[in-house]
Nucleic acid binder design. Structure first.
Lengths: 326, 326
DNA sequence: GGTATGCGTGAGAGCGCTCTCCCAATCCTG
DNA sequence: CAGGATTGGGAGAGCGCTCTCACGCATACC
């Protein structure tokens, strides 16, 4: 179980370390016979490059970070696995590691240090608190960063998002096409871009909708629906800005004698697992999370390759998934 | 934005690189005045150690891997965020990175290489396919590894698990205490330790229970419950070996005119988010996932510190969470 | 035949750090 | 007070790799 170095590969192949290195890194301009000899030496010795040594000289860690909110905010979030999966798909074939960091006191500072000392080549920020100064600091320092979802205030930062406005509008059109006459919406938190955009998009389509505020959590869906039924008992169609809230809201409808979708049609947003665990299953606006995550990874890699390239944003189009609730 | 090295810190502090290194690494036996000088130099220069260089000489990556099944098997799995959170809690204060790897063709091989070439110090294996040869290869190679859940066949490997048998027995006792007279169970896959143990534990408590097989997925819960109602219409209590299956099964009960818990009491297992999104909310057996994950991390770190230490297993006790379903 | 051009190869200088020596200074003991 | 034991600090050797540079050997041109 001894370590085999490039030096040894070179010795076995009868070439210099430099040439062996060229072969390992796929550099052109190595004579075919030598390349073969080196490759044979690599497999016969079971050589594996030492990333630390490489990283020391190339100043590339071959690792990116995924900065997540803490468990509580992440809890029940259906996205994590999909995000990881999407990023992994892009990053793994390149041998780049995906480092997970959950926010806690000091995590963001640690991520900054990791970036600065070259332990991480870049980070993807998910569910970042709108007031968080980290994104700003990162771009100020010229460090590669990609945001999941547009920043609250316009800033020159690369982000990937779904067209929230269009998705909410689709939900509105769906409810109208079901001939709902008294339409309401339960919103997300209005201090987040997603919360704002989903409300704005919906109101653009259904200007006279009743608006009740929630915060994307299940519990807020329950509370909001209770409030809605009290203030507007004749509601017959509701767009709920997250599946998780819808999941909490639907039982409230049932307990108040409303059948879904016959008495009240419900359309959610996200197409998360909560859409399937609802009864009836949710009609919802789907965001292609995995593809979006893959795109985030690609954008990040681009920035790493070309540090001074301009910030770009990529917006995916959502689709309406029609199930049983509306 | 220039990089500051130990060399520079030493120069500023007026000591040798060696002494600066001692201070950085908290070695004892450095004169208090020199230590102070170095610390001042560190903060004034904004020094951050280069992990690659350190890792090159210490042969420690300061990173561990979390090997997960692919997205499909992970989908709807409530555990991921909790596992990550638990591991992070232990690992972050030590500056150790958590690298996520989702299984796909070649991932396991890649994890092995990363381990062998020193890019990863150890791995935690989650949801490993019972037939997977990787755990065996890892321990054969003497590489630090911890399993989530006991291995199918006894082998000298460190693992952390919940007492599945005891948990299932608790579920059985709960149903008996509710005076259920016709008790059934929907099992997990019988080629997994968890599936086996939950069935065995339950049967030990309720030997005459009707047994219908599932595979932990929501869909299998639906199918199994349909089958159960057909073969045993007078069932009045059922232990369902995962919350996700229970989540699929309960609507089947409703559709067949059974009230939960009045006509049929239901007890699940996991206390995952599916327990809360069920209607009524699930009575279930809770496993302390986050604590277990933290323990896995600790066990892994121990193995990394003492490579030849014997394999140990840590088994957590589950608790019954009584809600509305039974 | 001599100079220019090119391409493939090897030598060797680091990348930033840790850690083992070794030396100097201080302490204890008889 | 001499001798050994103990301690703190510095010099310097590497860890394994990449990459620049210079060199040798063809091929091409005048």
């Amino acid at each position: 179980m001894k370590r085999v170095t490039l030096e040894e590969v070179a010795r076995v192949a009868g070439v210099s370390r430099a040439t062996a290195s060229r072969v390992v890194n796929g550099a052109s301009s190595v004579d075919e016979s030598l390349r073969h000899a080196v490759q044979k030496a690599i497999s016969s010795t079971g050589y594996l490059p030492n990333i630390a040594a490489r990283s020391l000289v190339t100043r590339r860690a071959a690792a990116i970070g995924l900065l997540l909110p803490d468990e509580r905010r992440m809890d029940g979030d259906p996205h994590l696995a999909s995000v990881v999966s999407g990023v992994t798909r892009v990053v793994r074939p390149l041998g780049i590691h995906l480092v997970l960091m959950m926010t806690g006191p000091g995590t963001r500072a640690q991520a900054m240090s990791d970036l600065r000392c070259g332990r991480l080549d870049g980070v993807i920020l998910v569910h970042t608190d709108p007031a968080d100064p980290v994104p700003g600091e990162l771009i100020a320092a010229g460090l590669p960063v990609v945001l999941a979802g547009r920043p609250l205030k316009p800033m020159p930062i690369t982000y990937v998002d779904v067209n929230q406005t269009a998705g909410a509008a689709m939900a509105g059109r769906r409810l109208k096409s079901l001939r709902c006459s008294r339409i309401a919406t339960i919103t997300g938190p209005q201090d987040t871009p997603a919360g704002q955009d989903r409300l704005a998009g919906f109101l653009a389509e259904v200007p006279d909708a009743v608006v009740v505020h929630g915060d994307f959590t299940r519990q807020s869906g329950i509370t909001a629906m209770q409030k809605l039924l009290r203030c507007c008992p004749d509601v017959d169609g509701v767009f709920i800005a997250s599946d998780l809230m819808a999941n909490g809201a639907i039982p409230v409808l049932h307990r108040n004698g409303r059948k879904v979708p016959d008495d009240v049609a419900v359309v959610g947003f996200d197409d998360s697992s909560a859409a399937l665990t609802s009864e009836p299953e949710l009609t919802t606006v789907r965001q292609p999370i995995t593809d979006m995550a893959a795109e985030m990874a690609r954008q990040l890699l681009r920035q790493i390759a070309e540090p001074r390239s301009p910030a770009t944003s990529v917006v995916f189009e959502p689709t309406l998934v029609v199930r049983d609730s509306g």
